[in-house]
Design a protein around this nucleic acid. Structure first.
Lengths: 228, 228
DNA sequence: TTAAATACTGACACAATTGTCAATATACGA
DNA sequence: TCGTATATTGACAATTGTGTCAGTATTTAA
Protein backbone atom coordinates (compact mmCIF):
# COMPACT_ATOMS: atom_id res chain seq x y z
CA UNK A 1 0.00 0.00 0.00
CA UNK A 2 2.91 2.38 -0.56
CA UNK A 3 2.79 4.96 -3.30
CA UNK A 4 1.42 4.23 -6.71
CA UNK A 5 -1.27 1.78 -5.80
CA UNK A 6 -3.03 2.38 -9.06
CA UNK A 7 -0.06 1.84 -11.36
CA UNK A 8 0.13 5.28 -12.89
CA UNK A 9 -2.01 8.29 -13.37
CA UNK A 10 -0.92 8.83 -16.93
CA UNK A 11 -3.86 8.88 -19.30
CA UNK A 12 -1.91 6.77 -21.75
CA UNK A 13 -3.51 3.57 -22.87
CA UNK A 14 -2.93 0.73 -20.44
CA UNK A 15 -0.14 -1.57 -21.62
CA UNK A 16 -2.27 -4.70 -21.54
CA UNK A 17 -5.86 -5.54 -20.93
CA UNK A 18 -5.85 -9.00 -19.41
CA UNK A 19 -9.28 -8.49 -17.90
CA UNK A 20 -10.78 -8.50 -21.35
CA UNK A 21 -12.44 -11.91 -21.06
CA UNK A 22 -15.98 -11.11 -20.26
CA UNK A 23 -18.61 -13.73 -19.56
CA UNK A 24 -21.80 -13.20 -21.43
CA UNK A 25 -24.82 -15.24 -20.49
CA UNK A 26 -28.18 -15.48 -22.11
CA UNK A 27 -30.64 -13.01 -20.64
CA UNK A 28 -32.66 -15.86 -19.18
CA UNK A 29 -29.65 -17.45 -17.56
CA UNK A 30 -28.46 -14.17 -16.13
CA UNK A 31 -31.86 -13.39 -14.66
CA UNK A 32 -32.03 -16.80 -13.09
CA UNK A 33 -28.59 -16.48 -11.49
CA UNK A 34 -29.40 -13.05 -10.14
CA UNK A 35 -32.70 -14.22 -8.69
CA UNK A 36 -31.01 -17.19 -7.08
CA UNK A 37 -28.43 -14.98 -5.44
CA UNK A 38 -31.06 -12.52 -4.26
CA UNK A 39 -33.13 -15.34 -2.85
CA UNK A 40 -30.15 -16.70 -0.99
CA UNK A 41 -29.29 -13.30 0.46
CA UNK A 42 -32.86 -12.69 1.48
CA UNK A 43 -33.22 -16.06 3.12
CA UNK A 44 -29.99 -15.84 5.07
CA UNK A 45 -29.67 -12.17 5.87
CA UNK A 46 -33.19 -10.86 5.70
CA UNK A 47 -34.57 -7.94 3.76
CA UNK A 48 -31.49 -5.81 4.22
CA UNK A 49 -29.52 -8.50 2.47
CA UNK A 50 -30.85 -7.49 -0.91
CA UNK A 51 -28.26 -4.99 -1.99
CA UNK A 52 -27.45 -4.74 -5.62
CA UNK A 53 -23.74 -4.58 -5.09
CA UNK A 54 -23.64 -7.66 -2.90
CA UNK A 55 -25.81 -9.68 -5.20
CA UNK A 56 -23.73 -8.58 -8.15
CA UNK A 57 -20.61 -9.76 -6.36
CA UNK A 58 -22.25 -13.10 -5.60
CA UNK A 59 -23.04 -13.65 -9.25
CA UNK A 60 -19.74 -12.23 -10.39
CA UNK A 61 -21.07 -9.31 -12.36
CA UNK A 62 -21.31 -5.58 -11.89
CA UNK A 63 -24.38 -4.13 -10.30
CA UNK A 64 -25.57 -2.18 -13.34
CA UNK A 65 -26.00 -5.54 -15.03
CA UNK A 66 -28.74 -6.28 -12.53
CA UNK A 67 -30.42 -3.01 -13.33
CA UNK A 68 -30.12 -3.87 -16.98
CA UNK A 69 -32.09 -7.06 -16.45
CA UNK A 70 -34.59 -5.89 -13.85
CA UNK A 71 -34.99 -2.19 -14.45
CA UNK A 72 -34.69 -1.32 -10.79
CA UNK A 73 -34.20 -2.85 -7.40
CA UNK A 74 -37.94 -2.81 -6.96
CA UNK A 75 -38.29 -4.71 -10.21
CA UNK A 76 -35.91 -7.34 -8.93
CA UNK A 77 -37.87 -7.67 -5.72
CA UNK A 78 -41.16 -7.97 -7.55
CA UNK A 79 -39.82 -10.63 -9.85
CA UNK A 80 -38.37 -12.53 -6.93
CA UNK A 81 -41.69 -12.40 -5.13
CA UNK A 82 -43.54 -13.62 -8.18
CA UNK A 83 -41.13 -16.50 -8.64
CA UNK A 84 -41.25 -17.46 -4.97
CA UNK A 85 -45.03 -17.36 -4.91
CA UNK A 86 -45.23 -19.52 -7.97
CA UNK A 87 -42.70 -22.03 -6.67
CA UNK A 88 -44.49 -22.13 -3.36
CA UNK A 89 -47.77 -22.85 -5.04
CA UNK A 90 -46.31 -25.72 -7.01
CA UNK A 91 -44.57 -27.08 -3.94
CA UNK A 92 -47.74 -27.07 -1.91
CA UNK A 93 -49.86 -28.66 -4.57
CA UNK A 94 -47.32 -31.39 -5.21
CA UNK A 95 -46.89 -31.84 -1.47
CA UNK A 96 -50.55 -32.67 -1.28
CA UNK A 97 -50.54 -35.15 -4.09
CA UNK A 98 -47.37 -37.07 -3.45
CA UNK A 99 -45.26 -38.70 -6.10
CA UNK A 100 -47.64 -41.37 -7.27
CA UNK A 101 -50.61 -39.09 -7.56
CA UNK A 102 -52.44 -41.14 -4.99
CA UNK A 103 -53.62 -39.75 -1.74
CA UNK A 104 -50.99 -40.26 0.91
CA UNK A 105 -50.81 -40.94 4.57
CA UNK A 106 -51.08 -38.10 7.05
CA UNK A 107 -47.47 -38.64 8.04
CA UNK A 108 -46.14 -37.99 4.59
CA UNK A 109 -48.52 -35.17 3.96
CA UNK A 110 -47.52 -33.23 7.04
CA UNK A 111 -43.87 -33.94 6.45
CA UNK A 112 -44.19 -32.68 2.89
CA UNK A 113 -45.93 -29.49 3.89
CA UNK A 114 -43.44 -28.71 6.62
CA UNK A 115 -40.58 -29.49 4.33
CA UNK A 116 -41.99 -27.42 1.51
CA UNK A 117 -42.07 -24.40 3.75
CA UNK A 118 -38.72 -24.78 5.43
CA UNK A 119 -36.88 -25.78 2.30
CA UNK A 120 -34.70 -23.06 0.82
CA UNK A 121 -36.14 -20.65 3.31
CA UNK A 122 -39.44 -20.41 1.52
CA UNK A 123 -41.28 -19.48 4.68
CA UNK A 124 -38.66 -16.87 5.44
CA UNK A 125 -39.24 -15.32 2.07
CA UNK A 126 -42.98 -15.43 2.47
CA UNK A 127 -42.87 -14.02 5.95
CA UNK A 128 -40.70 -11.17 4.82
CA UNK A 129 -43.21 -10.52 2.10
CA UNK A 130 -45.91 -10.50 4.73
CA UNK A 131 -43.95 -8.29 7.09
CA UNK A 132 -43.31 -5.69 4.46
CA UNK A 133 -46.81 -5.97 3.11
CA UNK A 134 -45.72 -6.91 -0.38
CA UNK A 135 -47.49 -10.23 -0.51
CA UNK A 136 -50.87 -8.59 -0.39
CA UNK A 137 -50.44 -6.41 -3.42
CA UNK A 138 -49.08 -8.82 -6.00
CA UNK A 139 -50.31 -12.24 -5.11
CA UNK A 140 -50.57 -15.05 -7.57
CA UNK A 141 -51.59 -17.58 -4.95
CA UNK A 142 -54.82 -15.89 -4.07
CA UNK A 143 -57.05 -18.88 -3.76
CA UNK A 144 -54.41 -21.41 -2.84
CA UNK A 145 -55.77 -21.91 0.63
CA UNK A 146 -59.32 -22.65 -0.41
CA UNK A 147 -58.01 -24.77 -3.24
CA UNK A 148 -56.08 -26.92 -0.81
CA UNK A 149 -58.93 -27.07 1.64
CA UNK A 150 -61.34 -28.09 -1.08
CA UNK A 151 -59.06 -30.85 -2.30
CA UNK A 152 -58.57 -32.08 1.23
CA UNK A 153 -62.24 -31.97 1.94
CA UNK A 154 -63.26 -33.98 -1.08
CA UNK A 155 -60.66 -36.50 -0.02
CA UNK A 156 -62.14 -36.71 3.44
CA UNK A 157 -65.66 -36.99 2.10
CA UNK A 158 -64.65 -39.83 -0.16
CA UNK A 159 -62.90 -41.63 2.65
CA UNK A 160 -65.84 -41.13 4.97
CA UNK A 161 -68.17 -42.55 2.38
CA UNK A 162 -65.99 -45.62 2.09
CA UNK A 163 -66.30 -46.20 5.78
CA UNK A 164 -69.96 -45.36 5.90
CA UNK A 165 -69.13 -42.55 8.26
CA UNK A 166 -71.01 -39.25 8.41
CA UNK A 167 -69.65 -36.65 6.02
CA UNK A 168 -67.28 -34.35 7.87
CA UNK A 169 -67.91 -30.68 8.33
CA UNK A 170 -66.41 -28.48 5.67
CA UNK A 171 -65.22 -25.90 8.13
CA UNK A 172 -63.54 -28.60 10.12
CA UNK A 173 -61.41 -29.46 7.12
CA UNK A 174 -60.65 -25.82 6.52
CA UNK A 175 -59.50 -25.46 10.09
CA UNK A 176 -57.24 -28.46 9.77
CA UNK A 177 -55.66 -26.90 6.72
CA UNK A 178 -55.26 -23.57 8.46
CA UNK A 179 -53.73 -25.12 11.51
CA UNK A 180 -51.28 -27.04 9.39
CA UNK A 181 -50.36 -23.97 7.41
CA UNK A 182 -49.94 -21.86 10.53
CA UNK A 183 -47.94 -24.50 12.32
CA UNK A 184 -45.69 -25.20 9.36
CA UNK A 185 -45.16 -21.51 8.92
CA UNK A 186 -44.32 -20.90 12.54
CA UNK A 187 -42.14 -23.96 12.51
CA UNK A 188 -40.15 -22.68 9.58
CA UNK A 189 -39.42 -19.45 11.37
CA UNK A 190 -39.03 -20.22 15.03
CA UNK A 191 -39.15 -24.01 14.92
CA UNK A 192 -35.44 -24.49 15.05
CA UNK A 193 -35.16 -21.98 17.83
CA UNK A 194 -37.90 -23.57 19.89
CA UNK A 195 -36.60 -27.06 19.36
CA UNK A 196 -33.12 -26.06 20.32
CA UNK A 197 -34.41 -24.34 23.39
CA UNK A 198 -36.42 -27.40 24.32
CA UNK A 199 -33.41 -29.61 23.94
CA UNK A 200 -34.76 -31.41 20.92
CA UNK A 201 -32.35 -32.76 18.36
CA UNK A 202 -33.15 -33.34 14.72
CA UNK A 203 -34.73 -36.65 15.59
CA UNK A 204 -36.99 -34.90 18.05
CA UNK A 205 -38.17 -32.54 15.35
CA UNK A 206 -39.12 -35.49 13.19
CA UNK A 207 -40.97 -37.03 16.11
CA UNK A 208 -42.81 -33.75 16.57
CA UNK A 209 -44.05 -33.77 13.02
CA UNK A 210 -45.15 -37.38 13.33
CA UNK A 211 -46.91 -36.50 16.56
CA UNK A 212 -48.72 -33.67 14.85
CA UNK A 213 -49.74 -35.89 11.96
CA UNK A 214 -51.17 -38.41 14.39
CA UNK A 215 -52.98 -35.69 16.26
CA UNK A 216 -54.79 -34.77 13.07
CA UNK A 217 -55.38 -38.38 12.09
CA UNK A 218 -56.96 -39.13 15.40
CA UNK A 219 -59.11 -36.07 15.08
CA UNK A 220 -60.31 -37.24 11.68
CA UNK A 221 -61.07 -40.70 12.98
CA UNK A 222 -62.92 -39.31 15.93
CA UNK A 223 -65.08 -37.13 13.73
CA UNK A 224 -66.01 -39.99 11.47
CA UNK A 225 -65.68 -43.13 13.52
CA UNK A 226 -65.92 -46.31 11.52
CA UNK A 227 -69.22 -47.91 12.23
CA UNK A 228 -68.42 -50.97 14.33
CA UNK B 1 -39.67 29.34 -4.72
CA UNK B 2 -38.47 32.54 -6.32
CA UNK B 3 -35.37 34.24 -5.14
CA UNK B 4 -34.51 34.62 -1.49
CA UNK B 5 -36.16 31.48 -0.22
CA UNK B 6 -34.09 31.57 2.94
CA UNK B 7 -34.97 35.07 4.09
CA UNK B 8 -31.55 36.60 3.85
CA UNK B 9 -27.98 35.57 3.81
CA UNK B 10 -26.89 38.26 6.15
CA UNK B 11 -25.21 36.82 9.23
CA UNK B 12 -27.08 39.26 11.40
CA UNK B 13 -29.02 37.81 14.30
CA UNK B 14 -32.58 36.78 13.38
CA UNK B 15 -35.15 39.37 14.46
CA UNK B 16 -37.16 36.99 16.62
CA UNK B 17 -36.83 33.45 17.81
CA UNK B 18 -40.37 32.19 18.31
CA UNK B 19 -39.28 28.56 18.03
CA UNK B 20 -37.51 28.83 21.32
CA UNK B 21 -39.93 26.64 23.26
CA UNK B 22 -38.22 23.34 23.53
CA UNK B 23 -39.75 20.31 25.20
CA UNK B 24 -37.45 18.58 27.57
CA UNK B 25 -38.38 15.16 28.88
CA UNK B 26 -36.69 13.02 31.43
CA UNK B 27 -34.21 10.61 29.90
CA UNK B 28 -36.39 7.70 30.86
CA UNK B 29 -39.48 9.22 29.31
CA UNK B 30 -37.67 10.11 26.13
CA UNK B 31 -36.25 6.63 25.76
CA UNK B 32 -39.67 5.13 26.25
CA UNK B 33 -41.29 7.36 23.64
CA UNK B 34 -38.56 6.61 21.15
CA UNK B 35 -38.81 2.89 21.71
CA UNK B 36 -42.58 3.03 21.31
CA UNK B 37 -42.28 4.83 18.02
CA UNK B 38 -39.61 2.45 16.79
CA UNK B 39 -41.74 -0.52 17.77
CA UNK B 40 -44.70 0.90 15.91
CA UNK B 41 -42.65 1.53 12.79
CA UNK B 42 -41.15 -1.91 12.92
CA UNK B 43 -44.47 -3.62 13.40
CA UNK B 44 -46.22 -1.77 10.62
CA UNK B 45 -43.50 -1.22 8.07
CA UNK B 46 -40.97 -3.92 8.77
CA UNK B 47 -37.27 -3.65 9.34
CA UNK B 48 -36.79 -0.85 6.84
CA UNK B 49 -39.22 1.22 8.87
CA UNK B 50 -36.64 1.90 11.53
CA UNK B 51 -35.11 5.10 10.26
CA UNK B 52 -33.87 7.60 12.75
CA UNK B 53 -35.35 10.56 10.96
CA UNK B 54 -38.80 9.02 10.70
CA UNK B 55 -38.86 7.90 14.30
CA UNK B 56 -37.64 11.30 15.37
CA UNK B 57 -40.47 12.89 13.44
CA UNK B 58 -42.97 10.54 15.07
CA UNK B 59 -41.81 11.53 18.52
CA UNK B 60 -41.46 15.16 17.58
CA UNK B 61 -37.76 15.51 18.16
CA UNK B 62 -34.67 15.73 16.02
CA UNK B 63 -32.81 12.61 15.10
CA UNK B 64 -29.59 13.40 16.98
CA UNK B 65 -31.66 13.21 20.15
CA UNK B 66 -32.15 9.51 19.44
CA UNK B 67 -28.43 9.06 19.01
CA UNK B 68 -27.93 10.84 22.28
CA UNK B 69 -30.11 8.35 24.11
CA UNK B 70 -29.13 5.17 22.33
CA UNK B 71 -25.60 5.79 21.14
CA UNK B 72 -26.32 4.45 17.67
CA UNK B 73 -29.05 2.96 15.56
CA UNK B 74 -27.76 -0.45 16.48
CA UNK B 75 -28.07 0.47 20.13
CA UNK B 76 -31.67 1.44 19.59
CA UNK B 77 -32.39 -1.85 17.89
CA UNK B 78 -30.71 -3.84 20.63
CA UNK B 79 -32.65 -2.05 23.31
CA UNK B 80 -35.87 -2.55 21.43
CA UNK B 81 -35.18 -6.25 21.10
CA UNK B 82 -34.40 -6.56 24.78
CA UNK B 83 -37.60 -4.78 25.73
CA UNK B 84 -39.70 -6.82 23.33
CA UNK B 85 -38.23 -10.08 24.55
CA UNK B 86 -38.89 -9.14 28.12
CA UNK B 87 -42.45 -8.03 27.43
CA UNK B 88 -43.06 -11.18 25.46
CA UNK B 89 -41.84 -13.31 28.31
CA UNK B 90 -44.15 -11.60 30.78
CA UNK B 91 -47.06 -11.82 28.39
CA UNK B 92 -46.61 -15.53 27.87
CA UNK B 93 -46.23 -16.33 31.51
CA UNK B 94 -49.28 -14.31 32.46
CA UNK B 95 -51.16 -15.82 29.56
CA UNK B 96 -50.57 -19.20 31.12
CA UNK B 97 -51.68 -18.22 34.55
CA UNK B 98 -54.76 -16.17 33.89
CA UNK B 99 -56.00 -13.38 36.05
CA UNK B 100 -56.95 -15.29 39.14
CA UNK B 101 -53.81 -17.34 39.27
CA UNK B 102 -55.82 -20.48 38.86
CA UNK B 103 -55.32 -22.83 35.98
CA UNK B 104 -57.69 -21.97 33.18
CA UNK B 105 -59.62 -23.73 30.54
CA UNK B 106 -58.00 -24.66 27.28
CA UNK B 107 -60.17 -22.14 25.47
CA UNK B 108 -58.90 -19.21 27.43
CA UNK B 109 -55.35 -20.46 27.41
CA UNK B 110 -55.16 -20.78 23.65
CA UNK B 111 -56.93 -17.49 23.18
CA UNK B 112 -54.47 -15.81 25.51
CA UNK B 113 -51.45 -17.22 23.78
CA UNK B 114 -52.69 -16.28 20.33
CA UNK B 115 -53.62 -12.85 21.53
CA UNK B 116 -50.30 -12.32 23.27
CA UNK B 117 -48.50 -12.95 20.03
CA UNK B 118 -50.67 -10.96 17.70
CA UNK B 119 -51.10 -8.03 20.04
CA UNK B 120 -49.08 -4.99 19.11
CA UNK B 121 -47.36 -7.03 16.46
CA UNK B 122 -45.26 -8.93 18.95
CA UNK B 123 -44.92 -11.87 16.62
CA UNK B 124 -43.96 -9.53 13.84
CA UNK B 125 -41.19 -8.12 15.97
CA UNK B 126 -40.02 -11.55 17.01
CA UNK B 127 -40.10 -12.89 13.50
CA UNK B 128 -38.10 -9.98 12.23
CA UNK B 129 -35.61 -10.68 14.97
CA UNK B 130 -35.51 -14.26 13.81
CA UNK B 131 -35.21 -13.33 10.17
CA UNK B 132 -32.28 -11.06 10.77
CA UNK B 133 -30.71 -13.44 13.22
CA UNK B 134 -30.70 -10.98 16.07
CA UNK B 135 -32.81 -13.02 18.43
CA UNK B 136 -30.19 -15.70 18.74
CA UNK B 137 -27.40 -13.49 19.95
CA UNK B 138 -29.06 -11.51 22.71
CA UNK B 139 -31.84 -13.59 24.09
CA UNK B 140 -33.27 -13.14 27.51
CA UNK B 141 -35.97 -15.72 27.02
CA UNK B 142 -33.60 -18.60 26.69
CA UNK B 143 -35.45 -21.19 28.67
CA UNK B 144 -38.94 -19.82 28.22
CA UNK B 145 -40.09 -22.75 26.16
CA UNK B 146 -39.02 -25.40 28.62
CA UNK B 147 -40.32 -23.30 31.45
CA UNK B 148 -43.76 -23.21 29.89
CA UNK B 149 -43.69 -26.86 29.00
CA UNK B 150 -42.68 -27.78 32.52
CA UNK B 151 -45.46 -25.73 34.05
CA UNK B 152 -47.96 -27.21 31.65
CA UNK B 153 -46.74 -30.69 32.32
CA UNK B 154 -47.00 -30.47 36.07
CA UNK B 155 -50.50 -29.18 35.53
CA UNK B 156 -51.36 -32.17 33.40
CA UNK B 157 -49.80 -34.59 35.84
CA UNK B 158 -51.80 -33.11 38.69
CA UNK B 159 -55.00 -33.31 36.72
CA UNK B 160 -54.28 -36.85 35.63
CA UNK B 161 -53.70 -37.85 39.21
CA UNK B 162 -57.05 -36.39 40.20
CA UNK B 163 -58.76 -38.53 37.65
CA UNK B 164 -56.69 -41.59 38.43
CA UNK B 165 -55.44 -41.53 34.88
CA UNK B 166 -51.96 -42.61 33.81
CA UNK B 167 -49.38 -39.82 33.97
CA UNK B 168 -48.99 -38.27 30.55
CA UNK B 169 -45.77 -38.42 28.59
CA UNK B 170 -43.50 -35.45 29.11
CA UNK B 171 -42.62 -35.18 25.45
CA UNK B 172 -46.28 -35.18 24.60
CA UNK B 173 -46.73 -32.05 26.66
CA UNK B 174 -43.71 -30.48 25.10
CA UNK B 175 -45.09 -31.17 21.68
CA UNK B 176 -48.40 -29.60 22.59
CA UNK B 177 -46.59 -26.49 23.71
CA UNK B 178 -44.50 -26.40 20.57
CA UNK B 179 -47.49 -26.84 18.34
CA UNK B 180 -49.30 -24.06 20.10
CA UNK B 181 -46.33 -21.76 19.85
CA UNK B 182 -45.78 -22.55 16.19
CA UNK B 183 -49.44 -22.17 15.34
CA UNK B 184 -49.83 -18.94 17.25
CA UNK B 185 -46.71 -17.61 15.61
CA UNK B 186 -47.79 -18.55 12.14
CA UNK B 187 -51.23 -17.20 12.87
CA UNK B 188 -49.85 -13.85 13.89
CA UNK B 189 -48.00 -13.51 10.63
CA UNK B 190 -50.10 -15.10 7.94
CA UNK B 191 -53.25 -15.83 9.90
CA UNK B 192 -55.12 -12.79 8.73
CA UNK B 193 -54.07 -13.47 5.18
CA UNK B 194 -55.10 -17.09 5.28
CA UNK B 195 -58.40 -16.33 6.96
CA UNK B 196 -59.21 -13.66 4.44
CA UNK B 197 -58.32 -15.95 1.60
CA UNK B 198 -60.50 -18.65 3.07
CA UNK B 199 -63.39 -16.27 3.38
CA UNK B 200 -63.37 -16.29 7.16
CA UNK B 201 -64.54 -13.24 9.00
CA UNK B 202 -63.42 -12.24 12.47
CA UNK B 203 -65.94 -14.59 13.95
CA UNK B 204 -64.49 -17.42 11.94
CA UNK B 205 -61.06 -16.69 13.36
CA UNK B 206 -62.48 -16.98 16.87
CA UNK B 207 -64.10 -20.26 15.92
CA UNK B 208 -60.79 -21.48 14.62
CA UNK B 209 -59.07 -20.82 17.91
CA UNK B 210 -61.85 -22.55 19.81
CA UNK B 211 -61.59 -25.45 17.43
CA UNK B 212 -57.87 -25.68 18.05
CA UNK B 213 -58.37 -25.53 21.78
CA UNK B 214 -60.85 -28.38 21.60
CA UNK B 215 -58.49 -30.37 19.43
CA UNK B 216 -55.89 -30.19 22.16
CA UNK B 217 -58.41 -30.85 24.91
CA UNK B 218 -59.65 -33.95 23.21
CA UNK B 219 -56.12 -35.09 22.74
CA UNK B 220 -55.45 -34.68 26.43
CA UNK B 221 -58.57 -36.55 27.36
CA UNK B 222 -57.75 -39.34 24.96
CA UNK B 223 -54.29 -39.73 26.43
CA UNK B 224 -55.58 -39.93 29.95
CA UNK B 225 -59.16 -41.18 29.71
CA UNK B 226 -61.07 -40.98 32.93
CA UNK B 227 -61.38 -44.49 34.26
CA UNK B 228 -64.96 -45.45 33.93
C1' DT C 1 -16.30 -10.73 -42.49
C1' DT C 2 -19.22 -7.28 -41.46
C1' DA C 3 -23.09 -5.47 -38.97
C1' DA C 4 -26.61 -5.31 -35.67
C1' DA C 5 -28.23 -6.42 -31.17
C1' DT C 6 -27.36 -6.59 -26.55
C1' DA C 7 -25.10 -8.32 -22.24
C1' DC C 8 -21.98 -6.04 -19.62
C1' DT C 9 -18.72 -2.58 -17.39
C1' DG C 10 -16.45 1.67 -15.14
C1' DA C 11 -17.18 6.09 -13.71
C1' DC C 12 -20.10 9.24 -11.99
C1' DA C 13 -24.33 11.69 -10.33
C1' DC C 14 -27.78 11.75 -6.87
C1' DA C 15 -30.33 10.74 -2.69
C1' DA C 16 -30.90 9.05 1.73
C1' DT C 17 -29.15 7.84 6.23
C1' DT C 18 -26.13 7.51 10.04
C1' DG C 19 -23.19 9.83 12.90
C1' DT C 20 -20.46 14.16 14.80
C1' DC C 21 -20.11 18.60 16.94
C1' DA C 22 -20.59 22.95 18.78
C1' DA C 23 -24.13 25.58 20.57
C1' DT C 24 -28.59 26.27 23.09
C1' DA C 25 -32.37 25.70 26.15
C1' DT C 26 -34.28 23.71 30.17
C1' DA C 27 -34.61 21.40 34.65
C1' DC C 28 -32.86 21.02 39.10
C1' DG C 29 -30.09 21.82 43.11
C1' DA C 30 -27.27 25.01 45.93
C1' DT D 1 -30.71 33.70 41.72
C1' DC D 2 -27.02 31.36 39.86
C1' DG D 3 -24.60 27.27 38.17
C1' DT D 4 -24.26 22.79 36.65
C1' DA D 5 -25.88 18.85 34.18
C1' DT D 6 -27.92 17.34 30.27
C1' DA D 7 -31.71 16.95 26.89
C1' DT D 8 -32.05 18.90 22.50
C1' DT D 9 -31.01 21.08 18.13
C1' DG D 10 -29.15 22.73 13.38
C1' DA D 11 -25.50 22.24 10.38
C1' DC D 12 -22.27 19.46 8.52
C1' DA D 13 -19.34 15.21 7.33
C1' DA D 14 -19.03 10.60 5.77
C1' DT D 15 -20.84 6.54 4.06
C1' DT D 16 -23.68 3.78 1.38
C1' DG D 17 -26.86 2.43 -1.99
C1' DT D 18 -29.55 3.26 -6.29
C1' DG D 19 -29.68 4.69 -10.82
C1' DT D 20 -27.60 6.81 -15.32
C1' DC D 21 -24.63 6.87 -19.23
C1' DA D 22 -21.43 6.31 -22.63
C1' DG D 23 -18.69 2.94 -24.20
C1' DT D 24 -16.88 -2.11 -24.66
C1' DA D 25 -17.11 -6.92 -25.66
C1' DT D 26 -19.53 -10.87 -27.37
C1' DT D 27 -23.00 -13.32 -29.79
C1' DT D 28 -25.70 -14.01 -33.84
C1' DA D 29 -27.27 -13.30 -38.36
C1' DA D 30 -26.53 -11.65 -43.07
Amino acid sequence: MSTAPKTDLSPAAPPHKPAAKRVRRSAEEARRLILDAAEERLATQGPEGIRLQDIARDVGISHPAILHHFESREGLVRTLIARTSSQFREKMLSALQGKNGDQLEADELIENVFEALSDRGTARLLSWMMLTGRLVEADGSRALMTEIATALHSHRVREAAERNAPTPDQEDTMFMAMLTANAAFGDAIIGRHLAEEAGLDHDGVIRFRRWFARLLSEHVERCGPRKS
